[in-house]
């Protein structure tokens, strides 16, 4: 947590003092995108107008306020960064979005989604083991571990134990009905 927040704080600093960065512009763009998706959802909902009864401002009142603030705020952020960039003459890239950094997090998100999809057909336990086997190896490799003979047995064993342990705790302990 601390690191991100420091970076966030550093980001503000750089907007205020240093040269503006592409990520600051992108942050505004993300909010504009969110506002666009939200307002599309509100516009195309045929039921919402039915909701206004009497003095109640209706179910779309607060959502519209939120959407408007996010949209205009995001736009303001984008314009602000552009003005700064024009004044400073540069728009710095942060070096945050490079394949060398992003590929493993992206792979984890994809494999988590596959894990989620596999839970119903395969059952929670099997899906967890299949997920755990490669990832225990990835974490082992990432933290500088060597793949000596010993680990060829130890890693799968650990994966099964962790997945199995957590599964048993929830399933037998608290009767959580896993698929």
């Amino acid at each position: 947590m601390s690191r991100e927040i420091n970076e966030g704080a550093a980001g503000t600093e750089s907007v205020l003092a240093g040269p503006p960065r592409v990520v600051d512009f992108a942050a505004g763009a993300v909010f504009v995108l969110i506002a666009l998706i939200a307002s599309w959802s509100l516009w195309t909902d045929p039921y919402l107008e039915l909701g206004k009864v009497g003095d109640d401002p209706g179910p779309s009142f607060i959502p519209w306020i939120g959407t408007t603030v996010i949209g205009l705020g995001g736009l303001a952020q984008m314009i602000w960064v552009l003005i700064k960039a024009k004044k400073a003459g540069v728009l710095k890239t942060s070096g945050e979005f490079v394949v060398a950094k992003l590929w493993l997090p992206a792979l984890l998100v994809v494999s988590l989604i596959i894990y989620q999809l596999a839970m119903k057909p395969l059952g929670f336990f099997t899906a967890s083991i299949i997920f755990a086997l490669p990832w225990v190896a990835v974490f082992h490799w990432r933290s500088g571990g060597a793949f000596t003979k010993r680990y060829l047995i130890q890693l799968p064993l650990e994966a099964v134990l962790i997945a199995g342990g957590i599964y048993s705790l929830f399933y037998y302990g608290i009767n959580v009905p896993f698929p």
Partner: peptide, 16 residues
């Protein structure tokens, strides 16, 4: 692991 096994044992004892 020992903590976990104690937890599991305690909880299983509680379930019907």
């Amino acid at each position: 692991m020992s903590l976990k096994s104690i937890v599991v044992a305690a909880l299983s004892a509680l379930t019907l």
